[in-house]
C-alpha cells in the first residue's frame, strides 16, 4: 500500500475523528458527548467527500446532524442533560474480549481476501454520479434494496407503536 502526501488530509481527519470519538465516550457531559459524536460524523463525511463519494458524504452529514439534534432534544425533554454521573465501572476483561473480537473481525476481512500487500488506496478513482450509484443499487443489489425498504417500513411502524403515549395504549379516546 502506498501512502503519499495526497493522503495527508485523510490521516489528519482520521486523527481528529478518533480524538472526538474518545471525547464522546469518556466525557461526563452529555452535551460534550453529543457535539463530539456530531463532529466525528461530519469529519467522516469530509473523508468520504475527499474519496469522491459525494452521496455518502451528504448521507453521513444528514445522519450525524439528525441524530445529534434528536439527542439534544431528547436530553432536554427527559432530563438526561442533568445526569452528572452517567458511567458505571467496567471490568477490564469485559473490554478486552470485545476489542479482540473487533480486531479479529477486521483481520479476517483484511487478510482473508487475498494479495494483501498489493492494495492500492486510490483517491477518487472514478467520477461517480447519482445516476451510476442508483443504477448500481437497482441492478446489482435489488434484493437487498427490497429488504431494506421492508425493514424501514417495519421500523417506522414499530417506532410509532413503541413510542405511543399511555392514553393511546389504554384505549382512552380524548
Amino acid at each position: 500500500m502506498n501512502l503519499d502526501v495526497n493522503h495527508l488530509p485523510i490521516v489528519v481527519l482520521s486523527a481528529v475523528i478518533l480524538i472526538l470519538a474518545a471525547i464522546a465516550v469518556f466525557s461526563r457531559s452529555f452535551r460534550t458527548s453529543t457535539l463530539s459524536v456530531w463532529g466525528s460524523g461530519m469529519l467522516l463525511g469530509f473523508i468520504f467527500l475527499y474519496l469522491g463519494s459525494e452521496i455518502l458524504a451528504l448521507g453521513q452529514w444528514m445522519f450525524s446532524t439528525l441524530t445529534a439534534f434528536s439527542f439534544l432534544v431528547h436530553g432536554l425533554l427527559f432530563g438526561d442533560l442533568l445526569d452528572q454521573n452517567p458511567k458505571t465501572k467496567v471490568a477490564w476483561r469485559s473490554i478486552i474480549m470485545p476489542s479482540l473480537g473487533a480486531i479479529a473481525f477486521a483481520l479476517i476481512i483484511g487478510i482473508g481476501i487475498d494479495d494483501f500487500e498489493q492494495w492500492n488506496f486510490e483517491l477518487a478513482p472514478e467520477v461517480f454520479a447519482l445516476k451510476d450509484f442508483g443504477k448500481n443499487l437497482i441492478e446489482q443489489h435489488t434484493l437487498a434494496l427490497i429488504a431494506l425498504a421492508i425493514q424501514l417500513v417495519l421500523a417506522t411502524v414499530g417506532v410509532g407503536v413503541v413510542a405511543r403515549a399511555d392514553w393511546i395504549a389504554q384505549g382512552d379516546r380524548r
Binding site: 478518533l18 470519538a21 474518545a22 464522546a24 465516550v25 452529555f30 458527548s33 439527542f71 431528547h74 436530553g75 438526561d80 445526569d83 454521573n85 452517567p86 458511567k87 458505571t88 467496567v90 469485559s94 473490554i95 470485545p98 476489542s99 473487533a102 480486531i103
Partner: peptide, 15 residues
C-alpha cells in the same frame, strides 16, 4: 472499539 466501550460503560440508554 470505542463504541463497544461506550456500550459497556454508559448507564443511560442515550449513552
Amino acid at each position: 472499539m470505542l463504541g463497544i466501550y461506550a456500550l459497556l460503560s454508559r448507564k443511560t440508554l442515550l449513552g
